[in-house]
Design a protein around this nucleic acid. Structure first.
Lengths: 143, 143
DNA sequence: GTGCTTGCAAATCGTTTGCAATAGC
DNA sequence: GCTATTGCAAACGATTTGCAAGCAC
């Protein structure tokens, strides 16, 4: 059993077939899939799987901080099984979502912002919007 | 006419009663309102105003970068007429949204991230989640 | 009068909920 | 058997779309 799964079991979460499949999917696909992506891709090999279960499971995982929920895309929630801190870049033209590494010290600085005195910070999300290299090359004009 | 309005006119945007009212609302209410908030609050004094117009106008403004669209709240889009760079903190308990000042140099650092080589960055959004001071004081446990 | 703007109603679509069937201890 | 989990269908709610009426130059 892999580490991410152990963590869930420790928290008393039963690992059903469906939950294992969804966690596996998230760990193998670093594509920031939507709930629908996961449902579509897992359905063929798990015909009984329902959207409801996908949604329930993703909510369960995110409540236990086993996955990140990204709000960078205003149309659907995106899920990320890679929980180490990093930023995201969304291309305004092709809508592709990219990982952007963030130096640890920069996260530390962001968390230590004096403007946050009195707040208890649980997570910091850094989202970039703009044009990705491919769309830049095609000289696409920003919408 | 105020500066924000001048900018819109320069871009060839006609300033209708509705658009002026919505821009005014955004400049006066630093509460990160949703489209529905704006509609509800303006309706009494503009009975003919429709939700569609509120949505259309907010889209028009954000396309012209006259307002910021915040994705920090996964339920609805929040709008911010204060376009100078700053971060946002959303309380996981009371769901209140706070402005967090961000030193200019920190934004500069975020934009200069070497991981962004080749990308053309249009905007950076920094979102915090956690407990706000009031909810900390009430010793609320994080969901 | 031509084109932009508005606003109603209906459609869309991601997500949630109610609830009955099922599985695991 | 009891509780947690699943999955269908329906509901929900924010946002978008089609389109006809109104307004501005």
């Amino acid at each position: 059993m892999i580490e991410a799964q152990k963590k869930l079991v420790e928290k008393g979460i039963h690992l059903s077939q469906q939950r294992i499949a969804i966690m596996d999917y998230l760990l193998k696909h670093k594509t920031h899939p939507t709930a629908e992506d996961i449902y579509r891709d897992l359905s063929p090999s798990m015909p009984s799987l329902s959207r409801t279960t996908v949604y329930n499971t993703l909510k369960l995982f995110s409540d236990h901080e086993a996955v990140l929920v990204l709000n960078i895309d205003d149309r659907n929630a995106r899920f990320d099984g890679y929980t180490h801190h990093h930023a995201h870049f969304m291309c305004s033209n092709c809508e592709q979502l990219y990982d952007v590494p963030i130096p640890d010290h920069q996260v530390a600085i962001a968390r230590a912002n004096p403007g946050l005195d009195g707040f208890r910070v649980r997570s910091v999300q850094i989202d970039y919007h703009g044009l990705c290299p491919r769309c830049c090359a095609e000289e696409v004009t920003l919408k």
